[in-house]
Amino acid sequence: MNEEKGMTIIVKTITRFTVWLIFLYGLYIIIHGHLTPGGGFAGGVIISLSFVHLTLAYGKDFFLKRHKISTLHNIEAGGALAFVIIGILGIAWTGSFLANFISTGKLFTLKSAGVIPLLNIAIGAKAGTALYLVFYYLVTHRSFIQKSESEGEIK
C-alpha cells in the first residue's frame, strides 16, 4: 500500500539520481557564499527543495518513516542559536556583537572572511529546514481535511 504512494516508477528512479545533485549544489552554494553569488538563504532553500522533490516523488510518509520530524525542529532552532552564539563570542573577543573575531585570511580563498562562512552555514540550516517544515505541515494538514470530510460523508 505504501509502495503505491507518490508518483510513478519513472519519476522515482529519476529522483534517486537527481536528489543528491540538488543537495550537493545547495551545499556548494552555502559554503562558497562569500566568494560567488548565493549564500545561506539561497543554498538553504535549494537544500529544502531537494527534500521537497523527495516528498513529492515518494509520498509524504517517506520522510517520516526514516526520521523524526522533531529532528528538523532541532536543526532549525540550532541554526538560530548558532547565529546568536557566534554573535556573543564576538562580544567576548572584540567587544561588539557579531564582530568578526577570526582573522580574515587571504582574499579569494575558501578559508577567508573570518566569521562569515560560519554565519552562512547557520543561516542555511535555519532557513532551509524552516521552509521545508512549512511545506511538510501544509502537505500533511490537507490529509486531515480530507479524512474528516470523508468521515462526515459516512456519518
Binding site: 562569500h34 566568494l35 580574515t104 577567508s112 572572511a113 552562512n120
Partner: peptide, 21 residues
C-alpha cells in the same frame, strides 16, 4: 576589512549582521 569577495554577503553578514539577526 571583511575578507569577503562578495560585497553583498559582507554587508548582510558583517556590516549589517544585526539586521540579518
Amino acid at each position: 576589512e571583511t575578507g569577503s569577495a562578495n560585497i553583498v554577503t559582507s554587508i548582510i553578514l558583517d556590516y549589517r549582521a544585526y539586521d540579518t539577526l
